[in-house]
């Protein structure tokens, strides 16, 4: 199996499972592939063999089969192949499939796992960590504890999106006006790709979510760091003061940065510098990336909802980018 599995890797591969739900499905797939592969080969072989027979006319020299005999033969084909074969196959399939499906469900009872709320927007992800001590909000970057189940409560803000981390388990639609729930678990710490799986408009292709599983203690630290982060302030008088002014003047009506603005149209930027990507996976986060995004985002991700910034001075954008990259708790 190993050489086959070598071609199965990839950040989004269903066949390289990293959690119990995805593992069940991967096994289901291999089982079905083998079983149905045999059925397929058998049917096609029977078909082709029927034509071959003609080349060997001595196979059955006198074709004087009586009508009754023929009826019996035909019935045997139909009962065996048409009723028994599919009947048994689907019974077996359901016997495996229904319990596997049930394990994926957030059943009531038992310990209630942590909840992470994810909202799909055109074309980015809002991620919220509800907590009595204060909610943490981030975007396009999801951190979850490894080794324990997590309940995701998902919804859509505008159109229907779908939440899907292929290596952890199945997908669930994010529908405006409803909250859907799915339970996923990562076996061990790691980084997993995720992408919107329901067509949601022109930039559906650029709606990636960076999912990172970390040990539970690290997760708590990660949350605490964001909860307790010092908010930004326009009173601060350092080299970034002009950038903050640019932000309040031009960005704050849509974006939030704790302490500076409370816009909720676009992603919350309070910990932007700590995220792995920009523009929901369009650009990798590295030095200067934010400034590049700010000047070229309509070329990199055409049609995205942020207006272009051609009216702004390039230097101001560069300063804005440099400051935004410092936003990490």
């Amino acid at each position: 199996m190993l050489p086959v599995l070598a071609g199965c890797g990839g950040s989004h591969s269903i066949l390289d499972p990293a959690g119990p739900a995805a593992r069940d499905v991967a096994w289901l797939w291999w089982g079905m592939l083998i079983g149905f592969g045999l059925v397929f080969v058998a049917v096609v072989a029977l078909w082709l063999a029927a034509f071959r027979r003609r080349d060997a006319p001595d196979h059955r020299p006198d074709r004087s089969v009586s009508p009754d005999e023929e009826r019996r033969l035909g019935l045997r084909w139909i009962l065996g192949g048409g009723i028994l074969l599919p009947g048994v196959s689907i019974l077996v399939l359901l016997a495996f499939g229904v319990p596997a499906g049930q394990r994926l469900l957030p059943l009531p009872g038992g310990e209630t796992p942590r909840v992470i709320e994810v909202t799909g927007h055109q074309w980015w992800w809002e991620v919220r960590y509800p907590d009595d001590r204060g909610e943490v909000v981030t975007a396009n970057h999801l951190v979850m504890p490894a080794g324990e189940p997590v309940d995701f409560h998902v919804t859509g803000a505008d159109v229907i999106h779908a939440f899907w981390v292929p290596r952890l388990g199945g997908k669930i639609d994010m529908i405006p006006g409803r909250i859907n729930r799915i339970r996923l678990q990562a076996d061990s710490p790691g980084v997993f790709g995720a992408q919107c799986a329901e067509y949601c408009g022109v930039q559906h292709a650029h709606m990636h979510l960076h999912v990172e599983a970390v040990p539970p203690e690290a997760f708590d630290d990660w949350l605490a760091a964001r909860r307790d982060a010092e908010p930004e302030s326009s009173d601060l008088d350092d080299e970034h003061a002009p950038a903050r002014d640019t932000f309040t003047a031009h960005c704050a009506s849509c974006h939030r940065v704790a302490g500076l603005g409370e816009g909720d149209v676009g992603p919350d930027l309070s910990d932007l510098g700590a995220r792995a990507t920009l523009g929901a996976g369009t650009l990798a986060m590295e030095e200067g990336a934010v400034a590049q995004w700010l000047t070229e985002h309509q070329r990199l991700k055409p049609g995205n909802r942020m207006p272009d910034h051609d009216h702004l001075d390039p230097q101001a954008l560069e300063a804005l980018g440099a400051w935004l990259e410092t936003l990490r708790p």
Partner: peptide, 17 residues
């Protein structure tokens, strides 16, 4: 045959769309 696979709910959750 792949259609029968898709009818299986957990597998469908993975490969749908």
């Amino acid at each position: 045959l792949t259609g029968v696979m898709l009818a299986l709910v957990p597998f469908n959750w993975q490969v749908h769309d």
